[in-house]
Design a protein around this nucleic acid. Structure first.
Length: 290
DNA sequence: ACCACAACCTGGCCGC
DNA sequence: TGCGGCCAGGTTGTGG
C-alpha cells in the first residue's frame, strides 16, 4: 500500500504518541510477520524498551529504542499501524500488538501478510542497501544524474528499484514520469540533461505535494490516526487510462512494465524522447503558455 | 546488468 | 449466490 508520502504521514502521526512510551507486552499472531530475530527473542528483547524516536527511511518506519535496538516496520502492500485503546481486541487481520504503558496498544494489521517487522541492533543491517532519499537536501540533479549514468534499465523499473532511489512506488513513479514528460520505457542512461533536471524536479514535487495531502488513499488505507489521504484526487495519470490527458487531451494509456501497471500519456511521453511537447515544459514541470 | 516470472497472501470486483 | 479470473500502493528469489 504505502509509498514514501504515506509512510511519512504515518511516522509523523505516531511520533508524539510513541516517544517516551514503554513497551509492556508483545503479542504475535502470525510469526512470519517478524522477519528477525526469531519470534521468541523479538518479544523478549522488545518488552521493557522505550521509544525514543520515530523516523522514516525510504518506505521503512524506524523506531529507535532506548537500549540501542531499532524496531523497523515495512508495510508492503496492505500493512497498517494503528494506536488503539487496550480494550480493543485484535481482529483477524491483526498480527502483532505492542501493549504500551499508557493504556494504548500499537496494532500491526495486514490482510495480505506481506509486511515485515525487524528488531536489530543496527538499522543499517536492514536499510543500508537503500538508494538516496529523494527529498534530502543533498539529493540534487547531479546526484540523480550519477545514479542514472550507465544504467541500461527502463526508467520506470529504475524508479521502482529501492537501491536506485528509496521511497517511490507505482503511483508516484508514474506521476513523476508524466510530469517530467518521460516515457516509462526510456533507458536510464539515455536521458538528456534537460530530462534529468525535469525528472528530479518532478519526483520531489510529486512527493512533497503528496505529503502535504497526507498521502493517497486506496480502498481502506488509513493513516495511523484513521484519517484518509487526499492525494488520489490529484493523480494525473495513475489508474486513469482511457481518460483525457490533463496536459494535451490525448487518451491516457496503460501498459505492463516489470509486471506492474504503468500509466502514461502516449503523446506527452514519447518513447523516442523527441516530443515537441518538450518546449512546452519548464524545468519545474509546469506547462508554459507560449 | 537486466528481464521475466513465480512466490508470498487475501480481498474486491467483474462477468457469467 | 456462487465461482472463476483478474486486479492490487511491494519485495525477493530463481533462472535465463
Amino acid at each position: 500500500m504505502p509509498e514514501l508520502p504515506e509512510v511519512e504521514t504515518i511516522v509523523n502521526q505516531l511520533r508524539p504518541h510513541l516517544r517516551g512510551r514503554q513497551i509492556a507486552a508483545v503479542w504475535v499472531g502470525w510469526e512470519r510477520i517478524v522477519d528477525r530475530p526469531p519470534v521468541a527473542e523479538f518479544c523478549r528483547r522488545l518488552v521493557g524498551q522505550t521509544f525514543v524516536a520515530a523516523e522514516r527511511r525510504g518506505k521503512f518506519l524506524l523506531f529507535p529504542l532506548h537500549r540501542g535496538d531499532t524496531l523497523l516496520v515495512h508495510l508492503r502492500m496492505t500493512g497498517h499501524l494503528r494506536l488503539l485503546p487496550s480494550a480493543v481486541r485484535p481482529d483477524r487481520h491483526t498480527h502483532v500488538v505492542l501493549t504500551l504503558d499508557d493504556g494504548q496498544c500499537l496494532h500491526y494489521r495486514d490482510p495480505r501478510k506481506f509486511g515485515r517487522l525487524y528488531l536489530v541492533g543496527d538499522a543499517q543491517e536492514v536499510v543500508g542497501g537503500l538508494g538516496p532519499e529523494p527529498l534530502a537536501a543533498d539529493f540534487d540533479v547531479a546526484a540523480l544524474a550519477a545514479q542514472l549514468a550507465g544504467r541500461r534499465g527502463r526508467i520506470k523499473s529504475l524508479l521502482l528499484d529501492q537501491r536506485f532511489l528509496a521511497g517511490l512506488g507505482n503511483i508516484y513513479a508514474d506521476e513523476a514520469l508524466f510530469r517530467a514528460a518521460i516515457h516509462p520505457l526510456r533507458l536510464g542512461q539515455s536521458l538528456t540533461a534537460e530530462e534529468i533536471t525535469r525528472l528530479h524536479a518532478a519526483v520531489r514535487a510529486v512527493l512533497s505535494e503528496a505529503i502535504a495531502a497526507q498521502g493517497s488513499t486506496l480502498r481502506d488505507y488509513r493513516s495511523a490516526s484513521g484519517q484518509s489521504g487526499r492525494f488520489q484526487e490529484q493523480w494525473q495519470v495513475f489508474r486513469r487510462q482511457g481518460e483525457a490527458c490533463p496536459r494535451c487531451g490525448t487518451a491516457l494509456e496503460r501498459m505492463r512494465v516489470n509486471g506492474r501497471s504503468t500509466h502514461f500519456c502516449p503523446s506527452c511521453q514519447r518513447e523516442d524522447g523527441g516530443s515537441a511537447d518538450h518546449r512546452l515544459l519548464s524545468p519545474d514541470c509546469q506547462v508554459v503558455s507560449l
